[in-house]
Design a protein around this nucleic acid. Structure first.
Lengths: 226, 226
DNA sequence: TCAAAAGTGTTATCGCTACACCCATGG
DNA sequence: CCATGGGTGTAGCGATAACACTTTTGA
């Protein structure tokens, strides 16, 4: 049987950031007919000689002007009729990035940030892709320190506490959370403090992520159970 | 930008079974040039109007004469040069099935069963696909009762103990394993016994999987920690 | 009665959960 | 001196891990 090269390839990226309170993600809009203007995930065609991940990365650079983004393959979305124009396989990724680095970027026409849970109805199966990304994030955050990617290099305990609550979508006891995290030794106490919000009465301690410790831990795998 | 439909689509399936002692999987051989005869995972082209999962299922039916197989999407393998003939995206699945139902099937030319860890070097990135499947199985077996799919409807405690050891690749204390499993109430004691191996001195009790209990459990999610 | 595999319990330790008050500071 | 948010400790409970002997039965 001869090979038929008759499918098209695309990639979408679900971009997550954390603004200190909510997970935020990036929604674009379709720039061509059909459905011009309709909300969609940032998406790009992949040519036959292009690496999917490279295309996804370049798209991030184009849209956000950022290199060096945490990207992970989510899944292939390949239903026959997901795109009415023909057989399009979408290999979707999710990306995590630091809100401080992107919040002031002027987005291109059609792009905007939305809070998790407030994403619009999107074209094709993009809501399904989005959903799978939030589920993946929920699982990953328990087993790998990807949370740190969403935070600035130095952060307060309240930052990371709020982040985990946002990712997992539930409240976590402050003391227990702190104990568990401290036991893991994944945080380095910088012994410096800041006032987290202007007008706060007491300064907060700043922490950093302990990369070395993490690398040792991963060898035998680890679990947070929240 | 016009869509270019210039990629080909394929699907491979990593088939697992359990023979009472080892995980077993199915390896095929390439039937056409180039690389005719080279070991590969069971693989099929997917046409532009076909569902990937349907193709994977039909391939299982063709190769093993079985319908109703547990299938789960693994990942998309899409590196540019993974297939030297052109851009081929492989959406891979893994399948779990019952050894008793397949061990006597006469396989087609080129197909054979291999023990986990003794799989041959395969074409393209098929070893990578295989590897990812075993990792996935390892994770899944802790969180979902997929083990039961690999066992006959009624099985002894030793069967399931050996299965978990094979999936996880390590020894598990017999008593602790039994306690944990019993606590979960996922097993029904049929109160019948068999001699597991001919010549055994003491008969073993037979158990069944408790589907209802599992469905209740899944609602809130569950974890085995082995 | 012995050989072989099946099956069974206890203890110490650890991690989880739930829960409420003190501390430092700026106004 | 008080209002605000940051930061801390304990007790009970359930799960885990480590560990070795008894039971059943056919030969």
């Amino acid at each position: 049987m001869a090979i038929k090269f008759d499918a098209a390839l695309g990639t979408s990226v679900v971009v997550f950031a954390f603004d200190g309170e909510n997970l935020i993600s990036l929604v674009g809009a379709k720039s061509e007919e059909p459905y011009r203007g309709a909300p969609m995930l940032p998406t790009n065609w992949v040519k036959a000689n292009e690496s999917v991940e490279d295309v996804a990365k370049r798209m991030m650079t184009r849209v956000l002007g950022m290199d060096q983004i945490y990207l992970e393959q989510l899944n292939a979305f390949a239903r026959v009729y997901r795109n009415p124009m023909g057989r399009v396989v979408n290999i979707a990724y999710y990306a995590l990035l630091n809100w401080d680095e992107v919040k002031n970027i002027k987005l291109q026409e059609g792009y905007r940030w939305v809070r998790n849970g407030e994403e619009p109805e999107m074209i094709f199966d993009h809501n399904e892709i989005y959903e799978m990304a939030t589920e993946r994030l929920k699982r990953r955050v328990k087993r790998r320190p990807i949370g740190f990617v969403l935070l600035p290099q130095r952060f307060t305990f309240n930052n990371i506490h709020a982040l985990y609550q946002a990712c997992l979508g539930k409240e976590l006891d402050k003391r227990n959370f702190r104990k568990k995290f401290m036991r893991s030794e994944l945080l380095i106490d910088t012994e410096e403090t800041i006032f987290e919000a202007p007008g706060n009465k007491k300064p907060s301690r700043l922490y950093e992520f302990n990369q070395q410790k993490y690398e040792k831990l991963t060898l035998k795998g680890y679990d947070f159970k929240f």
